[in-house]
Write a protein that binds this DNA or RNA. Structure first.
Length: 683
DNA sequence: TGTAAGTCAATATC
DNA sequence: GATATTGACTTACA
């Protein structure tokens, strides 16, 4: 797709980073390319496609680049934002007009969005009433939240308590909004209504009123907006107590064991009562655009409720045997009764970058380890969270990955003490002996763990051998030379043909699948590194994410590129040039690429300081590094399949070139302690 | 069938 | 100990 020339206005072909004569037909796009200033001089088609490598720059696109444009190597990377970046973002920045350079060229601008004007339609809520969850407020650990909760006689906002700028009392966008627009106290306009409604529906125990008041204030709106909330008769104290006491254990076997005989029967009945006692949020007729999604969500919710309620009674109202349908309130990423799964409309656009900054700040601010947050809130692993926070994909580019960001968003929308309490209440439920969480609370909001993640369930696990020892395949770690060779090739050919991969695999003594995986991962991760801001669709409203009150703890920018071993730091920057020159001179076949191998091998064997002249390299500079950043070179182009080049490569690699097959093998084998086969770390 | 996307989880690094 | 990196797996889709 990106087999394009990039041409400056003075007809000089634009080349990535390296300044040298340009005579190529294929140009990689460096991250330099994404400088904000420069990009404005580039046709919008290009900017749109750079994200995913899809769609843009197809055909004969020529990018007109202002020769005076400054290409900042660091400008395009999210991690390379200036340290005070967030300080430049006002709480409402996200709602400011956004310049859109659409492919249609209309340059549409999003209207400035008042935070509180976002989507009245958010009131629409799938039938996500909760079941067996009448005791949410008990989850608010009083001992830890006393400092946050003080009795008040009105439900008005306590604007001082969560004043913006106090690091210990972060305002969610809702809170900010509530301060700015007191109409929200009437619930006139309220973002993310569904998640909040779900939360509010959980507050139905004896402390309901107090807690509800606090939460209402904290959220910056008043749940009383819902008429049915007022009209619905509240459970009596007695009923509430019974509901609370009888909240299904639902989760663990040991909890189940605490209930005997009649208790279970009573609990079943109480569950049903509790369910019917919970005020159900109003469900306005969904708009046509979202009808399908809502209907589906409602169906899921209904199914969830039925599952949760279980066959507690048959059609005759007969109570079934205990265990026949024990409600399970185990939330997962697909649990529509989980407030964190609250749906987000299609017409809402979430700035994932802001969201991630906010999340990162929250984690730092409250000393929440990534692993805890990832597992308890997102149902993901720590590594996944880390990666997402550092390399968030734009909302509109996300597919199923939206789920994770949605949970982040819904979590951050909650008031501080709710956010923390969710984490707290999740905390100890899986730790024997430390479970100080009320039984019913644990039952209601038991932590969704990655183990509950459907994906992981389906992930095949190597069977244990006869000795019970897991036959888990150790993880391959590329040797330095393998990695560097692959990186060098990737720089030039993001999509080597299958034949080429086969050749590479043979010469590096790797599995074909390993080579394939490498290029697959490299392409994906290079795209991550070349992120440009996404643009909301015209019909989408930007959901503002309030930035942290202070500049967040800076994430030390790191290269998104491949990690290089200390050894590889002896590689000179010039290898970039040299290798690039090899590929760009590929019109004569892959002889120069062959030199890339040769040079890599030579350097592996201590012949630093020399560079194959054919590759156009210069003297080595010890200490310089090969900081390979695939993002600079990914152009999203399709598999580069040039039979003549591949044949040339093959011939060179297989003995016809400067460095024959045997040569490579010999050289590799001579590399002490660096088997070309890679190494497997035993566990 | 190949690729992209999303992710896990082992491992490396801070 | 917490976070970042990364090889490989699963799923969805064209």
């Amino acid at each position: 797709m990106y087999t394009n020339q990039i041409q400056s206005t003075d007809n000089t072909l634009f080349e990535p980073r390296i300044c040298r004569p340009c005579s190529t037909t294929t140009t990689s796009i460096a991250d330099d390319f994404y400088d904000a200033d420069a990009i404005t001089t580039i046709t919008t088609t290009a900017s749109r496609g750079l994200w995913s490598g899809e769609g843009a720059m197809t055909g004969n696109n020529f990018l007109q680049i202002d020769p005076n444009a400054h290409f900042n190597a660091s400008a395009g990377h999210y991690d390379d934002l200036p340290e005070n970046f967030l300080e430049t973002v006002s709480p409402h920045n996200s709602g400011q007009p956004m310049s859109i350079q659409g492919q249609d060229g209309n340059g549409a601008h999003l209207a400035s969005l008042n935070n509180m004007s976002v989507s009245v339609s958010d009131y629409a809520m799938p039938n996500m009433s909760t079941i067996g969850v009448p005791t949410y407020s008990s989850a608010l650990k009083a001992e830890s939240l006393d400092h946050l909760i003080t009795p008040r006689s009105s439900s008005h906002l306590n604007v001082d308590k969560y004043s913006y700028g106090n690091s210990a009392s972060l305002l969610s966008p809702l809170q900010l909004d509530g301060r700015n627009d007191h109409s929200n106290l009437l619930g006139i306009s309220r973002p993310n209504g569904r998640a909040s409604e779900m939360l509010s529906s959980l507050r139905t125990n004896p402390s309901y009123l107090n807690i509800k008041e606090e939460l209402t204030s904290d959220l910056g709106y008043n749940n009383d907006y819902d008429p049915t909330y007022l009209i619905q008769p509240q459970p009596s104290q007695q009923e509430l107590e019974r509901m609370t006491a009888a909240t299904p254990p639902a989760i663990s076997g040991d909890l189940m064991g605490q209930l005997q005989g009649n208790d279970l029967v009573q609990f079943e009945v109480a569950t049903s009562q509790a369910y019917h006692s919970i005020p159900q949020p109003v469900q306005p007729a969904p708009s046509s655009s979202r009808k399908r999604a809502r209907t589906k969500a409602a169906q899921q919710a209904q199914q969830q409720q039925q599952m949760a309620a279980g066959p507690s009674s048959n059609d005759d109202g007969q109570v079934l045997a205990p265990g026949a349908g024990v409600p399970r309130a185990v939330y997962s990423t697909s649990d529509v009764t989980d407030p964190l799964n609250a749906e987000i409309d299609d017409d809402i656009y979430i700035d994932t970058r802001d969201l991630c900054k906010r999340i990162a700040y929250e984690l730092k601010q409250h000393s929440i380890p990534q692993a805890i947050f990832a597992e308890r809130i997102l149902c993901r692993s720590q590594g996944t969270l880390s990666d997402l926070l550092r390399n968030p994909k734009p909302w509109n580019k996300l597919k199923s990955g939206r789920e994770t960001f949605r949970r982040m968003f819904n979590w951050v929308q909650q008031p501080l003490h709710v956010r923390l309490s969710i984490l707290d209440m999740y905390k100890d439920s899986s730790t024997p002996g430390t479970n100080d969480i009320p039984l019913n609370t644990a039952a209601v909001m038991s932590p969704p763990t990655p183990a509950q993640n459907a994906r992981q369930h389906s992930r095949s696990r190597p069977a244990a051998d006869e000795n019970g020892i897991s036959a888990k395949r150790p993880r391959l770690v590329f040797t330095d030379i393998q990695k560097r060779t692959l990186q060098a090739i990737f720089k030039e050919t993001q999509r080597p043909s299958r034949e080429m991969q086969q050749t590479i695999a043979e010469h590096l003594r790797l599995d074909m699948s390993t080579v394939s995986n490498f290029f697959m991962n490299a392409r994906r991760r290079s795209r991550n590194g070349s992120v440009v801001d996404d643009e909301p669709a015209p019909y989408q409203q930007v959901k503002p994410i309030s930035p942290p009150p202070q500049s967040p703890t800076q994430v030390k920018p790191r290269s998104r590129g491949f990690k290089t071993s200390p050894e590889s730091h002896s590689m000179p920057e010039h290898i970039d040039e040299a290798v690039a020159a090899v590929a760009h001179g590929a019109s004569a076949g892959y002889g120069n690429l062959n030199n890339t191998y040769a040079n890599l091998l030579e350097m592996e064997n201590g012949n630093e300081g020399q560079w194959n002249e054919d590759a156009g390299a210069v003297d080595m500079k010890p200490g310089s590094s090969l900081d390979f950043d695939p993002s600079q070179y990914d152009d999203g182009s399709p598999q580069q399949h040039d039979p003549s080049q591949e044949e040339a490569l093959r011939q060179h690699l297989e003995g016809g070139g400067v460095l024959g097959n045997d040569d490579i093998k010999t050289e590799v084998e001579l590399k002490d302690g660096d088997s070309p086969s890679g190494s497997y770390h035993s566990n």
